[in-house]
């Protein structure tokens, strides 16, 4: 277990092929006057390809904003963002849409699935939206790995919370995106089911080489990651490699969270 300082992050080389996502000098400000919030302050970050990274920090630390900007859901006020070696800063809405469709996957805390579509239709939705063809073999592999084979014809309300999240994971993995973003993906699940989903994410990282960036405030969830990036007050304040729950808790305590 090592704790690097903030300085070591600055040396990260954005745009490198081995980088799943990266930012340089990212700034984001919400509101004006008294309500002005500097959500991101000059954030330089690099997320390695094929790695499972967790972003942690107290509420209001800017971790969600960072993820939204990385995923092209929100725009930064200044700075640059790369996804899988492509700079996405300055892309217009339709280019960002195409990026989300082809190179990014999402797993949210709740409301991941379109309620009117079956599990299978939900999983293949990004590909349908891109008018692409589903790789049957890969679809079979992903759904089998996630244990969804006999649940494909069900609609979301017929699935348990864990199953719904697994469907969301399958959807995120199916396009073999540059990076899968998770926004508190286990926040709505009990600990046992949450552990199951996190193991799946970890396995997809290890076995399929999938890059994953997950925002969470749960130290247990973060302990499944290869690396934890700590944020506070809009800035990166440290990171942990191969952390366990105790070290994460200790680091968070230092942040005063």
């Amino acid at each position: 277990m090592t704790t690097k300082t903030e300085q070591s992050l600055v040396g990260a080389a954005p745009g490198r092929a081995a980088s799943a996502a990266a930012t340089r000098g990212l700034n984001k400000i919400y509101g004006t006057g008294d309500t002005r919030v500097h959500a991101l302050k000059n954030v330089d970050a690099n997320f390695d390809a094929g790695k499972f990274t967790a972003i942690m920090g107290p509420s209001g630390s800017g971790k969600s904003t960072l993820m939204h900007c990385l995923a092209g859901l929100d725009t930064a006020d200044s700075g640059n963002i790369w996804i899988g070696g492509t700079e996405i800063t300055g892309l217009n809405d339709s280019q960002l849409t195409k990026l989300r469709r082809e190179r990014v996957g999402f797993v949210f805390q709740a409301f991941n699935l379109v309620p009117t579509l079956t599990a299978e239709q939900n999983i293949t939705l990004p590909i349908s939206l891109a008018n692409g063809t589903v790789d049957k073999e890969w679809f079979g592999y992903v759904t089998k790995t996630l244990g969804l084979t006999d649940r494909l014809a069900h609609r979301p309300h017929e699935l348990s919370g864990g199953q719904q999240q697994r469907v969301a994971v399958a959807r995120a993995l199916l396009t073999r995106p540059d990076v899968v973003f998770g926004d508190e993906p286990t926040g709505n699940l009990d600990s046992k089911v949450g552990a199951e989903v996190l193991s799946l994410l970890r396995r997809s990282c290890q076995e399929m080489g999938q890059s994953i960036i997950m925002v969470t405030h749960d130290p247990v969830a973060a302990s499944y990651a290869d690396r934890v990036v700590l944020m506070n007050d809009g800035a990166l304040v440290g990171e942990l490699d191969r952390p366990d729950t105790d070290t994460i808790l200790a680091s968070l305590a230092k942040l005063g969270a």
Partner: peptide, 16 residues
């Protein structure tokens, strides 16, 4: 709204 936003998240463009 939320459902439409989800579709937009996972890659539906405005035209779609």
């Amino acid at each position: 709204t939320r459902e439409l936003a989800l579709l937009r998240c996972i890659g539906a463009d405005r035209k779609q």
